[in-house]
Write a protein that binds this DNA or RNA. Structure first.
Length: 579
RNA sequence: GGACACGUAGCUCAGCAGGAUAGAGCAGCCGCCUCCUAAGCGGCAGGCCGAACGUUCGAAUCGUUUCGUGUCCGCCA
């Protein structure tokens, strides 16, 4: 049970205070020696017409005999500091961790509710670069979190498989395409001709008109264009699926923008009938002045569709298909105006569920300024880092470290174990790089930072897990699966701190889901591992002073392992038994 | 020009429904492997929280202004 809630209940009853008020006032003190919960009494000064310090003292006096989960109450200026009874607290957290296992921090808060998460959404015929990784990791983790909280999650990959770019690609392929190269390495070849097109179009602007015409032909269903488009699409998907498998990411539905193209006329017609479409320079737009944002273009002047049109059709289709309670778009921050417009149009068209649509934006991935003037990765310029190259690099570096460590290991790893471990750690390191900071921050892409496996990194956490597992392995049968939790003797600073961090994983998960912010969970998981490292260094476990302490600490190790595995699982980071 | 972000230690970032001496990691310096994996632990040093006003008993946190950076602002996605 939630100790904060328990404390609130107790204080509310004993001190005759309002529960909701208490809940919002009660805080966790900045320093350990100030207790586990603190009630600042400043705000009660007015109602009681007394100095805050006096109020705190008065409260302390009034509390009298303490309940068994609180060991001590102290006044410190205007603060009423409460200390949890460590023994019972640790016993309870450890018991919950072990009994709940994988379901630790799970809940049924989302029961009966459907959440859609659109993420990743790479463009066909373009490389899957580190920018797509951002959306992929954030979306994947959000999906995992909502799933853990009991929501019915649908993971959607909204492929960029339509638009004028395909006109460009078709023009480029006709001119410069190399059939053999396309077979050998499809996306690389498509990228080559795409970049070439952009260079050529600078000198020969007619190429752009030609490209628009070819896209129009594609949209009208002309055989030649459709066949090429299908081919590009399939070849690209093969490459993407290979990456998703490697990243341990899956989707419930992979539909491209093209899928929605035949649903667009009905949407346009509906907007027209509702009197929302206005002619503007030959284009059809929906005016949004009352929202104080620029108009949303629905049809271009040549009558073809635009991304907003397709997003409108997609949203409506999704509502009809899933009757979602929440519809999340994990798409880059630069598109926030676009989503505001789309949601506003939906709202204006009378779809109340527009309020349940949310754009979860994230920052840009950039090169460091000292290397490139801080330019953004861009497909058009050919200035990209392929995600696969990054993954390969990370895994290779990990492997080198493992091989080195393996030399003086009494029980060396097999080649197979080395490869598996290196993959788990390398991929974890990359994933964590994208999850550790607030998602709206830009990521400056620096190899040495991403491949730095010390400190604030996934390998640090995986290492903590491996060490805990190592101890449990060594303990063998002397570390029983089951134990009498009442006999656990855990009360030192580091043991108690570790239990607190396990407990806080639950709050972090809730907050992270609420704020669509994986970094909150990532950060707490890191904090949990730091607490374990300290415990590990301070407390002898296998060599504990007596058998009861030994059993207690082994059990704590087991509980920690379990909680950490669950938390890392939510982050999509794999654990390893040793490293 | 308008809109939205962001500006905290040398670097990367937490903290921001206002509260007790502003926290981590990296980099720097100093310690710790005869003892459970040193991808680790402990310690030192490092900050007028971009600036100025304002609200408040109290502001990194809220408001206004200002400077700086980034992104977006109609037929690319």
């Amino acid at each position: 049970m939630d100790y904060k809630e328990r404390t609130v209940d107790y204080l509310a009853e004993t001190l005759e205070l309002d529960k909701d008020e208490l809940r919002s006032y009660l805080e966790i003190p900045p320093q350990e020696d100030m207790g586990d919960f603190a009630l600042p009494c400043f705000r009660y000064a007015k109602t009681f017409r007394t100095a805050p310090q006096k109020i705190a003292e008065g409260f302390a006096e009034k509390l009298g005999e303490l309940p068994d989960f609180i060991s001590e109450v102290r006044c410190s200026g205007a603060y009423l500091n409460l200390f949890l009874a460590r023994g019972p607290y640790c016993r309870e957290i450890v018991r919950e961790a072990l009994e709940e296992g994988e379901a630790f921090a799970a809940s049924d808060q989302g029961e009966g509710q459907t959440v859609l998460v659109e993420f990743s959404s790479p463009n066909i015929a373009k490389p899957f670069h580190v920018g797509h990784a951002f959306s992929t990791f954030i979306g994947d983790v959000l999906s995992r979190m909502y799933d853990h909280l009991g929501y019915d999650v649908k993971r959607l990959n909204h492929l960029g498989d339509y638009g004028t770019q395909f006109g460009k690609l078709i023009v480029a392929y006709d001119r410069w395409g190399d059939e053999d190269a396309l077979e050998a390495s499809p996306i690389a070849e498509l990228l080559r001709i795409y970049v070439k097109f952009h260079k050529a179009a600078e000198l020969e602007p007619e190429l752009d008109d030609e490209a628009r015409a070819r896209f129009k032909a594609l949209e009208d269903g002309r055989e030649e264009e459709v066949a090429l488009w299908k081919r590009f699409r399939e070849l690209s998907l093969e490459e993407f699926n290979r990456i998703y498998k490697r990243l341990d990411v899956s989707f419930d539905s992979t539909k491209g923008e093209a899928f929605y193209s035949d649903k667009i006329p009905a949407v346009v017609k509906d907007l027209e009938e509702k009197g929302l479409l206005v002619d503007s320079d030959g284009a059809k737009v929906v005016m949004l002045e009352e929202e104080d944002i620029p108009p949303c273009i629905v049809l271009k002047s040549d009558g073809s569709t635009i991304y907003a049109t397709r997003d409108l059709a997609a949203a409506i289709y999704r509502y009809e298909t899933y009757k979602f309670d929440k519809n999340i778009y994990v798409v880059g921050l630069p598109q926030s105006l676009h989503f505001k417009q789309v949601f506003a149009v939906l709202k204006k068209a009378g779809f109340d569920w527009a309020d349940d649509c949310v754009h979860v934006g994230f920052g840009l991935v950039k090169f460091p300024p000292e290397e490139s003037g801080g330019i953004t990765l861009s497909t058009r310029s050919g200035n990209v880092i392929y995600l696969e190259d990054l993954l390969d690099e990370a895994v290779a570096k990990t492997k080198a470290i493992i091989v080195e460590n393996n030399k003086d290991r009494p029980d060396p790893m097999t080649d197979e174990e080395i490869d598996e471990t290196a993959a788990a750690i390398g991929l974890g390191a990359v994933r964590y790089t994208f999850l550790r900071s607030g998602r709206e921050r830009d990521i400056i892409f620096r190899w040495d930072e991403i491949l730095d496996f010390e400190g604030d990194s996934a390998p640090y956490m995986q290492y903590a897990y491996a060490r805990a597992q190592s101890i449990l392995r060594r303990a063998g049968d002397s570390a029983p699966e089951r134990c009498d939790y009442e006999k656990l003797e855990l009360s030192s600073d580091s043991e108690f701190a570790l239990c607190r961090e396990m407990d806080h994983i639950r709050n972090a998960l809730e907050q992270a889901a609420e704020a669509y912010e994986p970094s909150i969970l990532a950060r707490q998981t890191m904090s949990l591992c730091r607490a374990f490292s300290r415990f590990y260094n301070q407390m002898p476990i296998l060599q504990a002073e007596d058998e009861r302490l030994r059993q207690s600490r082994l059990t704590l190790c087991r509980a920690f392992s379990s909680v950490l595995k669950t938390a890392l699982g939510l982050l999509g980071i794999k654990t390893v038994e040793r490293m």
